[in-house]
């Protein structure tokens, strides 16, 4: 066996560059990003074997895999920022729903294909533009993760945008389903760019982009896609739903985590 090298990981080096208070805020934020991509990646993986056609089944599984890859990098960094010996697996498998920090949008059930496409489009449009900003941000490790992931997120946004257009400008049936999905999910979109206290503190320090700066590009892309889809921009929902980023979740997350965490909860410490 090769001797285990007592190395300092790149994540630990990056974490050590921050003062303890900043490290704690960044831990919360990176955890939120990791939870978000894990929960959405898990949702998409539920489509595996159930896609409407083989090609789209593969597309959904590929996007899920990309998100899980991003999740791992983020949890590894979060674990180093926390600095209490927890691993990426501990963070994914051993926290309860109220400890999860993902926005409500990504935990919403898949519904039909139009529902999944609409959810993906709302998420991808935010995710892609956020990663573009993070990759030029001052935290070098978060920037490196974003630089890697933004290339993948670009393919995701292209996929979901094209499907919004196809379904919106498709048949009466596909249009009706897309309209229904957008009407249901629109109220969850605002949470993505509504800063929590943690995000606001990091933005004030210049460690996170101001979400108002992302808005013009996000809105321009969204308007262009909806126009091509011949779908009017939904009016702002009267009651925006939020709270997921602070641990207040819909009933759906508990069921999702029950499945995701089952093996590790039933057989603590089990490894492959």
């Amino acid at each position: 066996m090769p001797p285990v090298m007592p190395e300092v990981s790149p994540e630990q080096t990056a974490a050590a560059a921050h003062a303890p208070a900043v490290r704690q805020l960044l831990f919360q934020y990176v955890l939120q990003l990791a939870d978000t991509s894990l929960v959405l990646g898990h949702r998409l993986s539920e489509w595996c074997g159930h896609g409407p056609v083989l090609e789209q089944d593969l597309a959904l599984a590929n996007i899920a895999l990309d998100l899980l890859g991003e999740t791992r990098s983020l949890y590894q960094y979060a674990a180093a920022l926390e600095g209490r010996g927890r691993t990426e697996d501990d963070l994914a498998y051993l926290r309860s729903a109220t400890e999860y920090r993902n926005p409500l949008l990504v935990e919403q059930p898949n519904g039909d294909f139009a529902h999944t496409v609409a959810r993906q489009f709302l998420f991808d449009n935010f995710h892609y533009h956020l990663l573009l900003a993070l990759k030029d941000g001052p935290d070098a490790h978060l920037a490196a993760i974003a630089e890697k992931s933004v290339k993948e997120a670009a393919y995701h946004l292209k996929w979901s945008s094209e499907w919004v257009i196809r379904l919106g400008d498709g048949t009466a049936e596909s249009r009706q389903r897309l309209d229904r999905a957008l009407a249901t999910l629109w109220r969850y979109a605002a949470e993505l760019t509504a800063p929590t206290a943690t995000e606001a503190a990091l933005q004030a320090m210049g460690l996170l982009p101001d979400y108002d700066d992302l808005a013009p590009a996000m809105q321009a892309h969204q308007a262009r896609v909806l126009a091509e889809a011949t779908v009017p921009v939904p009016t702002v929902a009267p009651f925006a739903q939020k709270g997921g980023k602070e641990g207040r979740h819909s009933e759906h997350l508990g069921y999702l985590l029950a499945e995701l965490q089952y093996v590790q909860r039933a057989y603590p410490g089990l490894t492959w």
């Binding site: 090769p2 090298m5 190395e7 790149p10 990098s73 920037a143 490196a144 630089e147 890697k148 290339k151």
Partner: peptide, 14 residues
Amino acid sequence: YAKLAVANQLSPAW
């Protein structure tokens, strides 16, 4: 060669 380390580097992205 037994004293080995394989390190991961994210940036610049492949």
